[in-house]
């Protein structure tokens, strides 16, 4: 894929994650509260943002839940790697099903009370799913460009 398009996607994901983590520092930087409020409305469209599912520290919590933060972090990780390689990596579909299965099993287990909502588990299942999703999207954009040519 065109290096500029690759970089643009990487940059957008970077900004998206940066705003997501901004509330963790909003006590130190007061102006971040306005960004939190405005972007919080936008982030609530893609995530339920239930309080106990957010990643929190003393100063505040992320705008997205642990799983969504994992998904976008995974996508960002795969995007960073793709900046350094022009090779097209096609993920196996069974791996993708496995990543969805891991999320579904986690959701079922904590809803059945097998264990309480676990931020590290939610985050890691999200990373797995997010990185594979990114590879699919990247390949998709690549093939689309070829189709339109």
């Amino acid at each position: 894929m065109n290096k500029t398009v690759n970089f643009l996607i990487w940059f957008l994901l970077f900004i998206w994650l940066l705003i997501n983590f901004a509330p963790l520092f909003s006590d130190k930087f007061q102006w971040l509260k306005i960004i939190d409020f405005i972007s919080g409305r936008a982030y609530s469209l893609v995530c339920h943002r239930v309080d106990y599912k957010l990643i929190c520290c003393d100063d505040g919590c992320t705008l997205l839940c642990a799983r969504c933060t994992g998904i976008y972090s995974g996508a960002f990780f795969a995007s960073t790697l793709s900046l350094f390689t022009s090779r097209i990596i096609s993920p196996k579909s069974y791996l993708y099903y496995l990543s969805i299965f891991a999320i579904v099993i986690d959701i079922i287990f904590y809803n059945l009370g097998v264990y309480d909502y676990n931020i590290p588990i939610a985050f890691s299942t999200g990373i797995f799913f997010g990185s594979l999703s990114f590879l699919y999207i990247r390949n998709g954009v690549e093939k689309l460009i070829q189709e339109f040519r």
């Binding site: 579909s93 993708y96 390949n139 998709g140 689309l144």
Partner: peptide
Amino acid sequence: IFGIIGGLIGAQIISSK
């Protein structure tokens, strides 16, 4: 946006199948 993402991923999975 999410519809387009789903369409792109879905089409690739179906094609690979």
